[in-house]
Design a protein around this nucleic acid. Structure first.
Length: 292
DNA sequence: TAATAACCTCGCAA
DNA sequence: ATTGCGAGGTTAT
């Protein structure tokens, strides 16, 4: 029985360096975290409902985990507590625009999520917005995920690719996926039948991973970079959406028209392995500064 | 090779 | 109320 009445357990993870749960969990890397009335964040990681509370020394993690002994390790990996934020931020602060982003959102960290969930979520993200992506992803979970719970809180897991493939384009459209429905159905089928082995991509070089992901119809450079940055341990990935393009144009005086490979080369030449963090600080910084 | 419409749906102005 | 517009892209032409 999914999410049965396993005992709720808690563990505190020590965090060195800054961590702000709201921007990290709820600002567009993951679409399943919700704040509760006490300001804690409740989400579903793997097959378990997880509740996170910031503490002075780190994060209090509550769950009724499938594998209790692995909870701390799994959540430390998910939150990328292995990233040395002070070192990353110190290197990036050489750039004044990124430095301003870091000052605005010092506790914004990258996550290390499940690759299938990330791929599916970012296929759904195109020409959309964060509230709508949240709704669509949650509708997908409600329709095809497994019920799981933490005490009295019930949620659903992110659906397995097999279930999404089986649902098919028409039903995905009815859930609100719009023109992304055939893309999602095709990606689900590719993952389900083993043509695309996401887990194996972590060990491969960047160009091979890029090629594997963009081989899917409906997955271009930007979505592929999001999947690489948010789930496949590619901190050098630099997703260039319309906001980041605006940053490059307005703050870095780059030419109006630049090919995606040229942007990627510029970013990785300038920020190296920190390009992904630079990207995210710049993204939120320009969004914040352009909110009238 | 480079530019441009078309694409679902929804929330929000006017 | 109703309409028009744009939203963390990608594909086809």
């Amino acid at each position: 029985m999914a999410g049965g009445a396993r005992r709720v357990s808690g563990v505190e993870l020590a965090v060195t360096g800054p961590l702000d749960l709201e921007p990290t969990l709820a600002w567009g890397q993951s679409f399943r975290w919700q704040p509760d009335a006490q300001g804690r964040y409740v989400g579903v990681v793997g097959g378990d409902v997880v509740r996170l509370t910031r503490t002075p020394a780190g994060v209090w993690v509550e769950s009724a985990p499938t594998a209790p002994g692995e909870l701390a390790e799994a959540m430390a990996a998910y939150l990328r507590l292995d990233d040395d934020l002070p070192a990353i931020q110190s290197r990036l602060s050489a750039d004044p625009h990124v430095a301003a982003g870091i000052r605005a959102y010092p506790g914004l960290r990258m996550l290390r999520q499940d690759p299938w969930e990330t791929l599916a979520s970012f296929i759904l993200s195109q020409v959309s917005n964060i509230p709508r992506i949240h709704r669509t992803v949650e509708a997908l979970a409600r329709a095809y995920g497994e019920p799981v719970r933490l005490g009295g809180v019930w949620r659903r897991t992110f659906p397995r690719p097999e279930r999404v493939a089986e649902a098919g384009e028409r039903r995905l459209r009815r859930l609100g996926c719009g023109f992304r429905a055939p893309y999602l159905a095709a990606a689900a089928a590719a993952v389900a039948d083993g043509r695309l082995r996401l887990g194996a991509l972590r060990a491969q070089p960047y160009p091979a991973v890029l090629e594997a992901l963009t081989g899917l119809t409906g997955v271009g450079d930007k979505v592929a970079d999001c999947v690489m940055l948010f789930s496949l341990d590619r901190p050098e990935a630099f997703p260039a959406d319309r906001w980041v393009l605006r940053v490059l144009r307005e703050w870095y005086a780059l030419p109006e028209r630049l090919s995606y490979p040229a942007i990627r080369a510029w970013a990785q030449g300038r920020f190296g392995q920190d390009a992904g963090y630079a990207n995210h600080y710049l993204f939120w910084h320009i969004r914040e500064s352009s909110r009238g």
